[in-house]
Nucleic acid binder design. Structure first.
Length: 213
DNA sequence: CAGCGGATATTCT
DNA sequence: GAATATCCGCTGA
């Protein structure tokens, strides 16, 4: 029944490190989302690092606001934001409380509860597309604003948790520029993915919106 | 597979 | 008022 034998969550200290160390170390770990209909588990294959006040691409670059407050809180919690008028994306907060770095979860492979994810991702043509992209990932896992601030390190019956599991070997991790990030923030090679993994999302450069006609 | 336009609402200026 | 850490469906190769 339970696909993952070891259900130990990652300890909070795991996230209380520089975000550029945490981000590649998350690849291959399993995120467990417990929904009312049952669990959905996702193996992380692609993430991006956002380095708080030093990073023009970060939501926290200009300081604390109503939206980004969770980023300044304790590590290991989930920051969910709403974007482009219809999508949610989820992050894991890193570094000590008071700092504001986070890892955006961009893609993964559904390893449990695929039937639940498919119901939420009707446009996916195959299972590799269920969580290929940050908003798709959040949709597949039924993650929205209600989960903003959730502790992903707590054991037991929680809505969301990242298992310790086993990370992929470092020589299987590739990195490159972040996807869709505006301005100077796009130059940092802070996107990390598992090399040759079919669930990794395609790279897209930032596309400024055209003016309405 | 690449390029495009449209949909949509929250946030910050 | 303008921009946005996106996705989908369509077109043409």
């Amino acid at each position: 029944m339970i696909a993952t034998p070891d259900r130990t969550p990652l300890p909070r200290e795991f996230f209380d490190r520089p975000v550029l160390e945490v981000a590649p170390d998350l690849l291959g770990r399993t995120l467990v989302r417990t929904t009312p209909d049952g669990p959905i588990a996702l193996r992380l294959t692609e993430v991006e690092a956002y380095d708080g006040p030093n990073d023009p691409g970060s939501h926290a670059y200009r300081g604390r606001t109503a939206r980004n407050g969770v980023m300044f809180g304790p590590p290991g919690h989930v920051y969910v934001y709403f974007t482009y008028g219809m999508w949610f994306c989820m992050n894991l907060v890193c570094g000590p409380e008071g700092e504001s770095s986070a890892v955006l979860l961009r893609a993964g492979e559904i390893v449990e509860g695929a039937e639940l994810a498919r119901k939420r991702r009707l446009s996916a043509r195959n299972d590799k597309e269920l969580a290929k992209g940050p908003a798709r990932l959040a949709t597949a896992l039924d993650v929205d604003r209600a989960l903003n601030g959730t502790d992903a390190c707590a054991a037991g019956d929680t809505p969301l948790c990242v298992l310790a599991g086993t990370p992929v070997p470092r020589d299987q991790v590739s990195n490159g520029p972040r996807t869709g990030v505006a301005g100077d923030g796009g130059v940092h090679p802070w996107r990390f993915w598992i090399a040759n993994d079919p669930t990794v999302s395609p790279y897209r450069a930032h596309a400024p919106r055209r003016r309405p006609s």
